[in-house]
């Protein structure tokens, strides 16, 4: 099968958009001093293989994209995807050690943005972003299933704490509580535990019926459109229900 065509125009646009003073300075002033190397767990876990040095990962991705003015082959992009998604978790630990304050993770995130535009984000992340866009949560849980799970957990925890309720879409509550879709799907007990603690603390809280998933896998994929949408769903829920604060489950 022939390799897909690289959308060079899109890469060029993206590179031009990103090339503010910060990225320009970072790419130029990195002295390759290697202070970042020992901070990276990928580097440490692979017997200090230089391929995992954070500065080198940038060299092989963003720096290369700029040097080649975005005119790269599909094979080169695939190699970059392997690094940006598979050799870095964007943990930001190396940023703490850089004497110039270069934030490698921000640059890796920029690379992910470019790769995602070419359809090279790993499928799991693309699917999650698609789900979030279409259903408001990364696991495509229906509103019906969400409400059902909350009711079930309410019944379970009411036995231990009489009077406990799991409110959904209660306008005027003090606090909005949002969580990880994984809790609803795989760890429903997490909902009961949180509800018990919020009740014991006397919190006046509510779940929203839309915008309850606080995760943002689109951000990790590099999809800015869905990233903004995911965050806005939570923001909109807070505005709609007129809460004063948001508590996340992490």
């Amino acid at each position: 099968m022939a390799e897909p065509a690289v959308n060079v125009k899109l890469i060029k646009e993206r590179l031009a958009f990103l090339k503010g003073g910060r990225f320009k300075a970072w790419l130029e002033i990195c002295a390759h001093c290697a202070y970042c190397s020992d901070s990276c767990f990928f580097y440490l876990a692979h017997d200090k293989d230089p391929k995992y040095m954070p500065a080198y990962k940038v060299k092989q991705t963003l720096d290369k994209l700029y040097k080649k003015k975005g005119e790269v082959t599909w094979e080169e992009l695939e190699k970059m995807a392997d690094i940006a998604y598979g050799d870095c978790t964007a943990c930001r630990r190396c940023s703490l050690y850089c004497p110039f304050g270069i934030d490698v993770a921000v640059m890796i995130a920029a690379v992910r943005g470019i790769l995602c535009g070419q359809g090279l984000a790993p499928k799991g992340l693309q699917d999650a972003a698609k789900h979030h866009w279409e259903t408001g949560n990364q696991m495509a849980i229906t509103e019906e299933d969400f409400v059902e799970t909350c009711k079930w957990m309410e019944e379970e925890s009411e036995e231990e704490m009489p009077g406990l309720k799991i409110p959904i879409e209660k306008k005027g509550a003090e606090t909005l509580y949002v969580l990880n879709a994984r809790e609803v799907k795989f760890y429903p007990q997490d909902i009961a535990e949180a509800a018990m603690i919020l009740y014991a603390a006397g919190e006046d809280w509510t779940f929203p019926d839309l915008g309850w998933d606080m995760t943002n896998l689109a951000m990790f994929a590099g999809n800015a459109q869905v990233m903004a949408h995911s965050a806005k769903l939570v923001y909109d829920a807070a505005k709609r229900l007129e809460v004063k604060k948001i508590i996340t489950s992490e």
Binding site: Y85, G86, A90, G124
Partner: peptide, 23 residues
């Protein structure tokens, strides 16, 4: 240190699992 599963590493899927365990 990062747990080694951050930045979307877990939801990327099973093809990344071996690397995730190594690092």
């Amino acid at each position: 240190h990062c747990c080694g599963g951050g930045g979307g590493y877990i939801p990327m899927g099973p093809q990344f699992r071996k690397r995730r365990m190594q690092s």
